[in-house]
Structure formats: C-alpha cells, structure tokens
Design a protein around this nucleic acid. Structure first.
Lengths: 244, 244
DNA sequence: TCATGTGAAGCAGTTCACAGCG
DNA sequence: CGCTGTGAACTGCTTCACATGA
C-alpha cells in the first residue's frame, strides 16, 4: 500500500461526532475575510455620502478585484441591480447581518497582562459588535481591579461570570504555557469561539472554534522579505495560522 | 473587448519601476508561514532532546501534513537523509537562516498607546531575532519616557533615531487616521518592512513591504462562525489581509 | 528496508468572458 | 446601453504515489 502518508486524521478530539463540522457549501475563510474588507469599504463610502457603487469602483478604490467581489457576494444572494451596481447601505447591512455583526456579542478576556490590558482598552474590541465584559487573571492580586469599566476576576470565577454575562467569545492573552489550560477553562464555561494570542497553537474543534493569531509569524515573514532583498518573495495576503 | 473587468492595475504608486518586486520562483506566503510553524515544532523537539525526526512524526505530532512538509522543505534544498529523516538541529538552523532569524533585527514602534506599550513589553517582540530599540509618539508628553529599556521619542526624531539604531522594521500601533502619515514617516526614514496594526489597510510596495494585521477581521470570522451555528464554516487557516 | 524528494493528479480559489436583466 | 451574476478557463496549492538513494 505504498505510503499515502497518513490519513490526515479526520478531525480528532471530541468523541464521536458524526461529521466534520463544516457542512453544506462551506464558506472559505478567504471569502469571509474579504467580506469584512468589503464591509469596511462600504462603511467608508457611506461616510462619504455615497449611495450606490459598482464592483468596478469598489475594486479600483480599495485595491480589490471586481470579479471576485461579484463572485463573493453572489454566493449569498443577489444583492446588486444589473446595469446599476450595489446600493451601499443595503449591501453593508446585508454583509453585517451575514457576518453576524448586527448585534452585540459579549467577550471575556483571559490574561490581563500587557497585551490583555491593551485589548481591554482597544477601541475595535469595544465598539460596535464586540464588547469585553470581564477579564480574568491567574494573579490573585489583580482580582477586584477594573480596566476602564471592565472588572477583573480570578480564574476560578470564570465559569460563573462567563455564563452570567452570556459571553460568547474568549480572547486568550496568556503566556504560552498557560494557553492550553486557559482554553480548557473557557471551553468548560461554554464558550464556543476563541481568539488565541498566546504563542502556542491550540487545536480548534467543531464545537469550540479556535483562531490562533501568532504575532511572531508576521515578523518572520518580514524578516524573510528583508533577508531575500525583496525578490523571491511573493505578494501578500497571508494566514495567521490556525489549528487543524 | 467585452469587459475583462480591469487590468488589475499592475502595481500602481511608485513611478515606473520595471518589475513586480517578486522575482525568480517566489515563495508563497503560505509556505513561508508553514516554515515558521515547522521551526517552532523543531525547537520544541530540541527542548525534548530529540535529535532526528521524520516528516511523518512532525506531521502527526503537530497536526501538519507530511507530504506538505517535504514539499515545502524540498523547495530550498535537500535537508533530509533518505531512509532516516531530518536532523532536528540542522534543519532548525537551516530554517532559521532561511527565514533570516539567525540574527537580531532592530525594530521601531510608532504609536505608544495601549497596544504599542504592550508590544514594547511583549516577549516575542524582544527576544531572539527581534528587538524594539525605540518608540515614537505624536503626544509630546511621552517624549523622554521609557518603557522598560526602550526610550520614547517624538515623531520628529524618527528619521534620525531610526537611522542611528539601524532599525529595519517598523511596527505601527497608531489610530487608523494616523496610519498613512506614520507609514510615510517610516518610509522616509529608510524602513522597508512594516507591520501595521492600525485598523486601516496600508498599501504595500516592492520597496516597502507592509503587512497589515487587522485584529477586527479575526473577530468577524468568529462572529460568522457563531452566527452560522458552526456549520457552513470551512476549516481554518486564514489571512490577516494585506494590501495589494 | 525506510523515508526523502518529486512528477502527476486532484482540488481550490481566481480570473475571464459573456449571457441576462434592469 | 451598463453592470451584475455565472459557467468555463486558468492558475496555484495540496495530496498522492512512487522512484531514488542512504
């Protein structure tokens, strides 16, 4: 039977769930990210008072591809008007609801060190659709403090507080060796979406999606670019490595 | 000639440079990111005292694909020994030098707010190959302060300090509306690699590579996952969107 | 024999070119 | 007309399967 490498472990962990977790005609994460970009572009157009836009104009103004915009959007419905283009406001609101950004989601922050504190105060994480509702830290000295309006708790309180505040997302900003434990805790608390900034890749499961964001990878990429003198480096658009 | 959308603007901006910037057989950023992952896995094996490893074992232990590991590595030479595998230490050092991580690079930090301060103290940004050597902020009150050992300067001092400290990389952690100006300043100072954390996508050019890391995109992705109930969401591995 | 390195096959994501509709 | 929506072509990445060489 030659080699065939390895059967590429069809999603491990969680006992015996009957499928892969990705159903139907799954949306590629690349498409998903572009939808975010489109939405932001539309918001800028709205700020400028524009009411209608064609895929062409979106493309040339924001350095995107017109045909790709159309393909991406067509995947979710017919949002445009032939011969005219897209209504900026309508399309923005469609994308918003598609991405689930049309409502507020409560987030908890695990690890309130330098990076965690910065996230707690980071406008993009506390404006619009996302709201950090509580922080947790292993250091008992931090218990009872607040960052802005965000109360800091001990890790033991995580399950109770997370449930009480109906947190849906957890942001992990703990040291690498504490990441696995932190994930286990938030999972126990019923959190199903995790953004992991610890320099340790954590496994994503269908039941608890983990997005690993390793800031070092970006530096390595720039380093390679510098090393190679700018040649032999393909153009951008890159992963922030997530788990299998 | 029907439509053909738009000729996808063959790299605009900078006057008339004669080529794209990516030459020869350019390395895909996806490959590049995986090399980082391999390197980290190898480092873990070294910590454990392992001296040799096969692509199979690397794959199964770190949730990677064996054939892909081989393909990726083969692109840069023959690092393995047939019938045996790879020497952990040798391969790690090859990857290190390939990625340009075998020497220290000086970085400057533009914007010393919450996020900037966190980066200044962030171990991954100040250990090994990368070293923040100075910070800059538009707020004159911050001038003369230090974060750890890192001195904070006013923005005007950027060109002089950056050159004096031989900075190669700039990290932008400024508000969105200050990002374009910040990029212009670091570019003027001769910096050719930029990591942009501002929530504004900046254009990358062959002469000054910009990597945009928009943290909001990751949240939007998780939001979509939550919204869709976990189905119709493909598996991970995703872009942190860079410019065109 | 065992595991690498590699053409060939397969799959995914992007671009093209045009049919269809306002 | 003009611009969307979309099959078809294309490009590039991943996986397979095996020849090669220690």
């Amino acid at each position: 039977m030659s080699e065939s490498d390895v059967p590429r472990a069809g999603r491990r962990s969680a006992s015996g769930e009957e499928s892969t977790g990705a159903r139907r005609d799954a949306v590629s994460p690349l498409t998903l990210n572009r939808l975010s970009v489109y939405l932001r572009s539309l918001q800028e157009l709205m700020d400028r008072g524009e009411t209608s836009v064609s895929s062409q104009r979106l493309a040339s103004e924001f350095h995107l591809s017109a045909s790709q915009i159309r393909k991406d959007l067509a995947q979710f419905g017919e949002f445009g008007v032939r011969g005219v283009g897209y209504d900026v406001e309508i399309l923005a609101s469609k994308l918003s609801s598609l991405l689930g950004l049309d409502r507020v989601r409560a987030m908890i922050l695990v690890g309130v060190g330098n990076l965690g504190t910065a996230f707690a105060r980071y406008p993009a994480f506390n404006r619009g659709s996302f709201q950090v509702v509580a922080g947790f830290d292993a250091d008992p000295a931090k218990r009872g403090r607040t960052i802005g309006r965000i109360p800091i708790h001990s890790l033991d309180e995580l399950p109770a507080v997370a449930r009480e505040k109906k947190a849906e997302i957890a942001i992990l900003a703990v040291p690498g060796d504490a990441a696995a434990d932190a994930l286990e805790r938030v999972r126990q608390a019923g959190i199903t979406a995790v953004l992991n900034f610890a320099p340790t890749s954590l496994p994503s499961t269908p039941a608890c999606r983990v997005k690993n964001v390793d800031l070092r990878i970006h530096l390595a990429e720039l380093s390679f670019f510098l090393e190679s003198g700018g040649d032999e480096y393909a153009e951008d658009q890159t992963p922030a490595r997530s788990a299998s």
